[in-house]
Design a binder for these strands. Structure first.
Lengths: 158, 158
DNA sequence: GATGAAACAGCCGAGCT
DNA sequence: AGCTCGGCTGTTTCATC
């Protein structure tokens, strides 16, 4: 993982459809060299995939929310397979604190969200829901190589 | 937005580097037709970008957490520009509930996370932090076209 | 939306540093 | 070992229907 690898990751995070040629121009090495490096990054599991982001509003998912769930430890084996196959759950994390799971979900309407919450409550346990008004930052997969490049991050203050 | 557009989005969400030819084979239309559709989807703002996802562990970001912040309404104009330029903040949402902001952050270590929380507390207000143990679902940008395809989602039960 | 031709990018092997 | 260069192959783009 040298400077060029980080540069490649950075560029691919900004535009995953960038051609090898564009990348080679930015990195000042030939395209076969870029291809070899990308291959290595994929094989070593550093690059895990290339995704397209979509404007949820425009495809009629108007409601985003965080749902936290109180789960008995033994319920996990039922909860995870269930939750993984609901496409509306875009992220689910096991966390510290009163609620053991925190999920990020997207639904066409608050009614759909409410239906889902009811199912979760009936099947698994207490929930706490926060509806999203607006998203000010969404850097998923973006900029993290940058974070590493600017020395080690953390306390840079504006 | 017809069935083919959704299919294209689905395929690009799974692999944003798929070639026009691959897409054309899957969708049973010619590659110029695919190119035109992708262009339209980009121009209409449905497709907002192509990103590469990276294994955070492997680039030494070992700690993921959710930080909630209590913010006075007037502090937002200071908070947003500040938060947007911290690369460790991968998502920040304004939400309903006791805490007005919920952020998802990644740091190399708990020490770095702690430093960051201290800055936030000093500059903005009360926080509540949940550290992530494990992530069972991470469908960011993935599968949502699917969610729409399977009729309207919500109460499909396993 | 399809087709075919031209431009372009990616791939593989040879030789270089 | 990793890089560059050249030629070949496959892909994208554009004009036309």
């Amino acid at each position: 993982m040298d400077k060029i690898d980080r540069k490649i990751i950075n560029l691919l995070q900004k535009n995953a459809r960038a051609s090898l040629k564009e990348l080679s121009k930015e990195c000042f090495i030939s395209s076969p060299a870029i291809a070899a490096r990308i291959n290595k990054l994929e094989r070593s599991g550093i690059i895990t995939g290339y995704h397209t982001s979509v404007n949820m509003e425009k495809i009629d998912f108007h409601v985003k929310a965080f749902i936290q769930v109180q789960l008995e430890p033994r319920q996990k084996q039922e909860f995870y397979p269930y939750i993984q196959q609901i496409p509306n759950v875009i992220e689910c994390n096991c966390v510290t604190g009163d609620y053991s799971e925190i999920m990020e979900v997207v639904f066409p309407s608050t009614t759909d969200l409410d239906d889902f919450i009811n199912i979760i409550q009936q099947r698994f346990g207490k929930t706490s829901t926060q509806i999203v008004f607006s998203t000010s930052v969404d850097h998923r997969g973006v900029k993290l190589a940058a974070a590493q490049e600017i020395s080690k991050p953390s306390k840079q203050n504006n």
